[in-house]
Amino acid sequence: MTKGEVLAKLNEIAQEVFEDDELILKENTVASDVDGWDSLTHLQLISDIEDEFKIKFLMGEIQGFANVGELVNTIINHVEGN
């Protein structure tokens, strides 16, 4: 999977979780840029990503993403590791 494909999929998931059809995530987007991205919705996002990509994040990864780009890279690593 390419970065672009992962980002596109992630964007769909995020639109649903944050209930915003116009939300566009970029690699440098951080949580504070997005309305409603708090510790709880973050967990829902993580859970939905895990279901969608059929991966499981490590405990330490879940709270440690600096920005969306890092999240995308971690997803790719897990998908390729499967």
Binding site: S39, L40, L43, Q44, S47, K56, F57, L58, M59, I62, Q63
Partner: peptide
């Protein structure tokens, strides 16, 4: 889901 418990103190999975 242990990760959910340790990250968010949720004792049952989503």
């Amino acid at each position: 889901d242990p990760a959910l418990y340790y990250n968010a103190k949720m004792a049952i999975s989503i």
